[in-house]
């Protein structure tokens, strides 16, 4: 009978693990990706801290990380993960590859959002005697805030997909459940439930993100 394979406790635990991975990795991704994105933007051609060498270097690193398929990154990262968090398993073991996969992606979104800030505003702030740091903190980041939040929403949703893949290397969570029970043991009902839960998570993230963007947007 459909549903007979479902152990709701396991499902709840798995969902909890997925959310935990998502929240932790998103937080660290934003913490790392934001400054990286600002650096990518600021060192760019004609920007406030134009620096070709630094920009080329950062851009190269970001491109390399982004070009590695996440499933490969998971495996390549194993030794580094063990070094960083002591294990490659469970929620903790999933976070380093999730962050390394998502931070460069978010950094590019940050860079794009910052480029949307009109040059005139930066010039006006320079004309007022603002320092480069003040321009970043008081003008660029607040003006780009809707874009930064929209970017974080997109990144969060990408991370939901990544957490499912991380299940393959023993991270746990809904993806793990789907693969081990839904796929390998042909328990279609488990598969359906996990996919629906993932869908709900993505839906909620998008709605919350959109609302937040609307609230901080004053254009």
């Amino acid at each position: 009978m459909f549903g007979s394979n479902i152990d709701w406790t396991t499902v709840a635990e798995a969902a909890g693990d997925t959310l935990l991975m998502l929240v932790a990795s998103l937080a660290i991704t934003v913490i790392l990706g934001l400054p990286l994105g600002v650096a990518l933007y600021a060192t760019g051609r004609g920007r406030i801290l134009e620096n070709r060498v630094v920009n080329a270097l950062l851009s190269f690193v970001v491109n390399v990380l982004r070009s590695v398929p996440f499933i490969i990154l998971l495996i390549v990262m194993l030794p580094v993960t063990v070094l960083l968090v002591g294990t490659s398993l469970g929620v903790a073991g999933a976070i380093p590859p999730l962050v390394v996969g998502a931070a460069p992606f978010y950094a590019r979104l940050v860079e794009t959002a910052l480029r949307e800030v009109e040059r005139g505003m930066i010039e006006a702030t320079q004309a007022m005697g603002g320092t480069t740091w003040q321009i970043v903190r008081r003008v660029l980041l607040p003006e780009a805030l809707p874009g930064l939040i929209a970017g974080a929403t997109v990144t969060a949703i990408a991370l939901v997909g990544y957490t499912a893949m991380a299940g393959v290397v023993g991270a746990g969570g809904l993806g793990d459940l789907a693969i081990r029970f839904g796929y390998q043991r042909f328990q279609t009902d488990v598969m359906v439930v996990t996919v629906v839960l993932l869908l709900v998570i993505v839906q909620i993230l998008q709605v919350l993100g959109d609302r937040w963007v609307a609230r901080v947007s004053h254009r």
């Binding site: 005139g120 010039e123 006006a124 004309a127 003008v139 607040p142 003006e143 004053h218």
Partner: peptide, 11 residues
């Protein structure tokens, strides 16, 4: 300094 397009901060 004042500007043609004002350059006020939206935020």
């Amino acid at each position: 300094m004042i500007f043609q397009h004002f350059n006020l901060l939206h935020s």
